[in-house]
Every structure is written in structure tokens, then in C-alpha cells.
């Protein structure tokens, strides 16, 4: 028997992935690859590790999540909807004129979003500022910063990392979504990242490598890091772009997926069916 908490998170992940796919399908296109690769992470953070209250999004004791790779906004919205921040059907308005759910997270528009992102790199410094401010104010909220592996190309990330390490912001965890791809292809080919974990260590971070589809491992790592003090902290999350649905994992151009081909539409429909089964699976069968 698997832990019931993990079984619950598994169902949550299926539900979140379902909603993301559904949203993008309705829009006709969207950032699928990088949304799917952080589903398990978001489920652990919101479903298990973060202090937050959907009924009181501005609660002063809440932990902060900064999605610096803002193009994965749909993944965050689906997670927040699952947690009850807003009605599910609101997700259908993604990217429509006048929506509160823009492609990239906007703190002035969406309930539960604390930091506006979209221009890559900028979430890192804002997260560092939030963490520094929380320390100054002697508050014990935590900050979770999600950065793309391609996003690491931006020099601003490394400026923020120096700052975080220099000031030993141990109330912040940098989580790098190492899905090995960016927009134009593999990170290896576009701009070689070399060994990301070693780089983070060299920058002064206590660094863990964690499998990005392993809910239990992510849960353990985040919970452990919460208790590690006096150092900057990083998780290099080993993920797959398009994670969770074989067809989209294998699709080479899966950064932004267009549903204008029969093939992609068929695969999406099949994936929705498969995910629906996982969502409705009874606990004892797990």
C-alpha cells in the first residue's frame, strides 16, 4: 500500500494535467512542455508542503511561490483551481480578451499569484527580494522559486543567485526545472548548461538532485530543505519536457504545442481520457 498522501497527490497531478491540456486545447495552442514538467512539483508544493489558505489568499503567514518561467502559467492556474482559489470553469477563459488568466502570471489579475513574471530571468530577483524582505521583517514564511533550465541562460538569474547565497537566504528554495529543452531545442545545443548542480554548488548553494516525476522524492526533498538553515538551497529537478504523457514527451517541438493537426488533437483527446481514469481511480486500487 502506498502512502495515502502520495496517492492523493497522484490524483491531483492527473487532475492538474487534465486541466492544463483542456485549457490549451480550447485555446488551440499553448506552452504545454514546460507546464507539464512542473505538475508534480506544483502538486507537492500546494498539496503538501506550502503554508497557504485558498479561502484567504492574502493570509500573512502564506508561503510565496514565484514562477519565474512564467510561460508555464497554465500549470499554476490549474493547481490553484484544484486547491479551490477560484471556480474551475474560470480556467476556460485563459488568454481570451479581458481574462483574469493571462498566458503569463499577473499578480494584479489572478487570485493566488504574488509575483508577475513572463520576461524570463526577472522572477529570480523578485523572489530574492521577497525572501530578503521576509527576513528583514522577521517573518518565517518560505519562498519557492521555479526557474527554467533555459531561463538560466539569462545573466540576471546568476546575479540573483549570488545575492541569495551571499545573504544566506535560507527561507528560499531555488527549484530548477531541468527538462533539458528550451524553445529552439535541447539546452545542450542552444547554450550548453554544463553541470547545473555543480554550478549551483559553486555559487554557494546546498544542492539536491531530485526526480521530477517522483512525488514522494519531491515531497521528502522539499520537507527536508525547509529545515536546512544558514545556507542558500537548490533543487535541480530532473524532469522531461511534456512530462506525463508519452506522446507529448516524444514530440520534438513541444515547447508550444499547436492543436491544429489531427494527430495532436487525437493524442490530446486520448490523453484526456487516460487522465480522467487516473483522476477517478479508487484509493484501494492504488
Amino acid at each position: 500500500m502506498r502512502d495515502t498522501k502520495i496517492a492523493g497527490l497522484e490524483k491531483m497531478a492527473a487532475g492538474v494535467r487534465y486541466d492544463i491540456l483542456n485549457m490549451l486545447l480550447k485555446c488551440g495552442a499553448g506552452h504545454l512542455g514546460g507546464s507539464f514538467s512542473i505538475v508534480e512539483l506544483l502538486c507537492v508544493l500546494y498539496g503538501s508542503q506550502m503554508n497557504h489558505d485558498p479561502a484567504n489568499p492574502d493570509w500573512s503567514g502564506r508561503d510565496y511561490l514565484v514562477l519565474s518561467k512564467g510561460h508555464a502559467g497554465p500549470a499554476l492556474y490549474a493547481t490553484l483551481a484544484h486547491q479551490g482559489y477560484f471556480a474551475h470553469d474560470q480556467l476556460d477563459t485563459l488568454n481570451c480578451g479581458g481574462t483574469d488568466f493571462p498566458s503569463h502570471p499577473d499578480r494584479l489579475k489572478t487570485i493566488g499569484v504574488d509575483v508577475t513574471t513572463g520576461s524570463l530571468g526577472q522572477g529570480t530577483s523578485q523572489a530574492a527580494g521577497v525572501a530578503y524582505g521576509l527576513k528583514l521583517a522577521k517573518r518565517d514564511n518560505h519562498v519557492y522559486l521555479i526557474v527554467g533550465d533555459g531561463e538560466l541562460n539569462e545573466g540576471q538569474c546568476w546575479e540573483a543567485f549570488q545575492f541569495i547565497a551571499h545573504y544566506r537566504l535560507d527561507n528560499l528554495v531555488v527549484i530548477i526545472d531541468d527538462n533539458k529543452k528550451q524553445l529552439d531545442g535541447y539546452t545542450q545545443d542552444v547554450m550548453n548548461p554544463f553541470d547545473i548542480a555543480k554550478k549551483m554548488e559553486a555559487f554557494g548553494f546546498y544542492t539536491m538532485k531530485v526526480k521530477g516525476d517522483d512525488l514522494e522524492a519531491i515531497d521528502l526533498a522539499v520537507s527536508y530543505l525547509r529545515r536546512v538553515g544558514s545556507t542558500a538551497k537548490c533543487i535541480v529537478l530532473d524532469t522531461v519536457k511534456g512530462q506525463g504523457i508519452g506522446y507529448f514527451e516524444e514530440l520534438m517541438d513541444n515547447h508550444s504545442v499547436k492543436f491544429d493537426s489531427q494527430e495532436n488533437q487525437k493524442a490530446a483527446k486520448a490523453a484526456l481520457d487516460e487522465l480522467e481514469k487516473l483522476m477517478n481511480r479508487e484509493a484501494e486500487n492504488v
Binding site: L120, G121, N153, E154, G155, D184, V190, M191, D253
Partner: peptide, 22 residues
Amino acid sequence: GASYFNKINKAAPHNFIQMGIQ
């Protein structure tokens, strides 16, 4: 992929520089 500059990379790789997100 968005600008089609990848076509320049294909046709004239010597004259193309991929900068990454920088």
C-alpha cells in the same frame, strides 16, 4: 522557431549565432 531565424541556421550555419535566452 518563432522568427524563422532557424532557417538561416539551416541554410547558412556559418552565418548564424544562437545566443540562448540572453
